[in-house]
């Protein structure tokens, strides 16, 4: 999460927003109150100076990425090399803790701080992982797991987002269903696993269903609250333009809800892997959860750790993917101060 935070403030555009609002607003107007005194102060007036020059009809000579240009002109004397160095340093900082953990993992069993039988050094785990990967076994298990968790996750998102939009839009429905949804959300999905197995058997259906179930609630509840917190003036605006309800949804409610909906989706992404692995430990012939469990039974400890590491790698990668998608879809958001 912290990595996300630092990354979000990163875009070089940010400091650029500072100079524009203050002065340019009103010096852009024809009866410019600030202008008479000095002849165009150099730096902050740059964007507004371009304004009067622009002809009324033709598009002004401002590139589509307006913020890129002043940024490269004023601040930022850094060369590509300096930038690469900075990026390298940031990457080093971000991976330092993980590398430290790996080093500890390698050293502790070797130094006799941990029993190497139960905690083999990371190099052994890596070798076991490589072996599993090479003979295709790991791919097979990972494939089975990914299919189930992405399948369940996808179904849950496809159902929960439209449903949440509908429920959220009709306030009385939201008030009526709210407590019930809270009950479902707070019922640990895994507690219901026996019920799913009873009803749906021990095959794929019950596993995918439990993932769907677990992913449904965070997305649904976040979507409902997202719709509820859409700025009422925006709705009023759309109403005053006589926008039909479906268009109001598409043009106002949906885009305004994206950030909050995505928070729910990200939670669901984490949950989908968590729940699936547990389900696979109980009744499965394939999957990473099964691999971990079976390796433990057979006392193949490095293989067990290889399975665990794969699970966490998939979790991190999936989260990163969702974070990237989220950032793409909510670039417009006011950067958190």
């Amino acid at each position: 999460m912290t990595a996300t935070g630092t990354a979000r403030t990163h875009p070089a555009a940010r400091p650029q927003t500072a100079p524009t609002p203050a002065g340019a607003a009103d010096s852009a107007a024809p009866p410019a109150p600030a202008a008479p005194g000095q002849a165009a102060p150099p730096a902050p007036a740059a964007p507004s100076a371009a304004v009067p020059a622009a002809g009324s009809g033709s598009p002004p000579p401002v590139p589509s990425r307006t913020r890129a240009r002043p940024a490269s002109l004023t601040a930022r004397p850094s060369s590509p090399a300096a930038r690469a160095a900075r990026r390298l340093r940031a990457a080093a900082l971000r991976s330092a803790a993980v590398l430290a953990l790996l080093a500890l993992w390698e050293a502790a069993p070797r130094a006799g701080l941990a029993d190497p039988t139960f905690l083999p050094p990371v190099s052994e785990v890596a070798a076991a992982w490589w072996e599993l990967a090479a003979d295709g076994e790991l791919g097979e298990h990972a494939g089975a797991s990914l299919l189930r968790s992405f399948g369940g996750f996808g179904i849950a998102v496809a159902v929960a987002v439209p449903l949440g939009l509908l429920i959220g839009w009709y306030r009385p429905v939201a008030a009526l269903l709210g407590p019930l949804l809270e009950v479902f959300r707070n019922t640990a999905a895994l507690a219901l696993l026996p019920v799913f197995v009873l009803l749906l058997g021990i095959g794929e259906t019950s596993k995918v269903s439990i993932v769907v179930y677990a992913c449904l609630w965070p997305v649904l509840l976040n979507t409902i609250s997202a719709v509820g917190s859409v700025d009422p003036t925006l709705v009023k605006l759309a109403r005053s333009m006589d926008l039909s309800t479906p268009r109001l949804f598409r043009k106002v409610v949906l885009p305004a809800s994206v950030p909050a909906v995505f928070t729910g989706i990200r939670l669901a992404g984490a949950v989908s892997i968590l729940v699936l692995v547990a389900a696979e430990m109980i009744g499965a012939k394939a999957g990473l959860g099964y691999l971990v469990n079976a390796s433990q039974y057979n006392f193949a400890i490095p293989q067990m750790y290889a399975g665990i590491v794969t699970i966490s790698a998939i979790g991190v990668a999936f989260n990163q993917l969702l974070v990237t998608a989220e950032r793409r879809l909510s670039l417009w958001r006011v950067p958190a101060a």
């Binding site: 107007a29 304004v51 622009a54 009324s56 598009p59 401002v62 307006t66 417009w332």
Partner: peptide, 16 residues
Amino acid sequence: GLAGFEDRHPHELSGG
């Protein structure tokens, strides 16, 4: 009086 500011998002603009 906003020629040249077409591509700004609201949070990049002043109140006026």
